[in-house]
Design a protein around this nucleic acid. Structure first.
Lengths: 343, 343
DNA sequence: GGAGATTCGGAAACCGGTTGCCGCCAAGCT
DNA sequence: AGCTTGGCGGCAACCGGTTTCCGAATCTCC
């Protein structure tokens, strides 16, 4: 940026203020403000002189001062209720991107599954007079609202609030499962098994129920009761062996996560079953590291978390501008087809 | 938080100001400020009354106003030069944690490998008068400084600045490689191969060179020239097959990443070689998803990115408080031993 | 009881911008 | 020439805190 180097005075430790600009341009501070913001009535020549002075000093208005008399800070808080992980990242990125386009800056708050930290961050954000708050978390399960009677809008992304009046954007896990099942049916599979995470986990329960009900709508059933376990490759391998040793008749497995699916793929291959010829395989999450490294590459349901984050940010911006969208919002899933079902 | 509910006036859309508190307590605004900050000389009874009024209104000082006359915003900017990914997260979390403890809030800026966005964010942060900036990125390679003559301290974390005077905190990849080699030597291996990422990638080059030189210091050599490829499981599998088919004599493989190591493990198993009995295996990154799902679980070099982030944040806080630590800082790696070398 | 010491809290300036209002000056009109 | 009109830009209040300075009230002691 050589252009900036020559105009800024490097080593000048104090950022230029509007008075500095006014002095240099030979006008008053108020006039500078008008010139820079296009308000009031100024001679073109005056405006030009002010702009030149501002440029020369590298003037950037102090946002704290702007915030003070506009009442708007153009910042939002993003609270991740649990540790920032694989699911939070695309959410954060999508939201940050959408907000940045709206000239908003984002405060990142990692509450680490600690309600005390959560409330500490909430107070901090309110003290900083953020224009709004996005609450995210790892689980799609609903959670108590982060606060009540707050003076600013709040949007829940991925997780949802137990208060049905709160604005929550959640992935359509049920619809995603339907797409997975429909796809397996479309490629001619009829004896579909389901392997997934812990039964008490909301996502596992929802996806399993949706898979079963979609089959029943076609007059079919799961090849056996869903195998609930954990969200790991090891469980995928183990569950696949259970399917094989109990002589279950199956030609497809729909898995609750890509990690599980990958474990299943490895165990099937070790047992001499071919994917997708003997068994078609569908995962969930479309986590590229897993889905692409899997042998063969894995068909998977994508919750489109980045888009979901952008969606949530858009709703927050609207709410900040006086057009709130209370209640739950369902964000669609997308099926990404790869070799594990169409080789 | 039922306690708050009763004290805050829900639905009161405008946050309480210091004047509101003053009016309720029957004192002046200045007195409220003194009471809340423990300045000046006030009667105990007056102080108590003010505190009670502040509590009743749920008063939180407007940080913009505080910033305006203290010149300190108690915020820092965190710019990730490339997309936030697996490496950035522990960095961000560590830094955010350390800064939060210092009462600092963090602005998250995702520059997405775009120099334009980078400069946009830099200007935004300067306009917001952040007290300091942390710059991170995916690669350990050094990069041009984000700005020159900036009025606030900047710390580079993980990546480093080409300006040797800038404060950069980088992982000791060379030391990490040494630890990996030393460990393999300690468990009796002598014919060590190295499989890693692209040759032009800084980390790949550094780790390969460090491995070779450490062996030479013991009068040994790599079993063959390092196999450079890409950071993927597929390449790990392919490279392992190269080792096997070229009849290279090897009893250990040190890999440039856990993904590569996992591919190697799969290919070795498929070829009937036992890990660690026939071949010991060491990865790099200690990415739990890979290292733990690997069969057997993978010994790996951990760059301790979260600690590194905390380290960087600490240096930034010190610099903000007038005690800068210019120049590069090397953050040690840690070897995590698992079954792939000690089964 | 009065002078001096001490305690307590209010008034006002200030941080860095924004904005409504008003005054000054030149041009236009009669 | 005198008055009106309107363009231009300065003055000052304000946003919400913090801090300095100072005055008033009370206390102490002779």
């Amino acid at each position: 940026m050589p252009a900036r180097k020559t105009t800024e005075t490097p080593g000048n430790d104090r950022p230029a203020t509007i008075s500095d600009v006014a002095r240099l341009a030979g006008v008053s501070a108020g006039t500078v403000s008008k010139a820079l913001n296009g308000r009031g009535t100024l001679r073109t020549e005056t405006r030009r002189r002010v702009l030149a002075a501002a440029e020369q000093l590298g003037f950037q208005p102090n946002r704290a001062a702007v915030a003070l008399n506009s009442g708007r800070t153009y910042t939002v808080g993003m609270i991740t209720t649990d540790t920032i992980g694989r699911f939070s990242i695309p959410l954060l990125m999508g939201a940050e991107d959408a907000l940045g386009a709206g000239e908003m800056s984002v405060f990142l708050c990692d509450a680490r599954d600690d309600r005390i930290r959560e409330q500490y961050y909430l107070r901090t954000l309110l003290s900083r007079r953020v224009d709004g708050i996005i609450v995210t978390g790892r689980r799609t399960q609903s959670r108590p609202p982060i606060g009540t009677g707050l003076p600013i809008p709040v949007v829940y992304a991925f997780i949802s609030s137990t208060d049905p009046g709160d604005c929550s954007v959640v992935p359509d896990e049920e619809g995603g499962s339907h797409k997975a099942i429909d796809h397996l049916l479309a490629v001619g599979r009829r004896r579909i098994a389901h392997i997934t995470g812990p039964e008490h986990h909301h996502s596992a329960a929802v996806r399993a129920a949706a898979a079963a009900s979609r089959l029943e709508a076609s007059g079919l059933h799961l090849a056996r009761a869903p195998l609930f376990g954990e969200w790991s490759e090891a469980w995928g391998r183990q569950a696949a062996r259970i399917l094989l040793t109990t002589a279950t008749d199956f030609d497809a497995v729909f898995c609750g996560s890509d990690q599980i699916a990958r474990g299943v793929a490895d165990a099937l291959r070790a047992a001499g079953r071919r994917v997708p010829d003997d068994v078609a395989l569908v995962g969930f999450d479309n986590w590229d590291v897993m889905a692409l490294a899997c042998q063969p590459p894995l068909t998977s349901v994508d919750m489109e978390l980045e888009k979901l984050g952008r969606h949530a940010a858009g709703l927050l911006l609207a709410a900040i501008n006086g057009a709130p969208s209370p209640g739950p919002h369902i964000h669609p899933c997308r099926l990404v087809v790869r070799d594990s079902t169409s080789g």
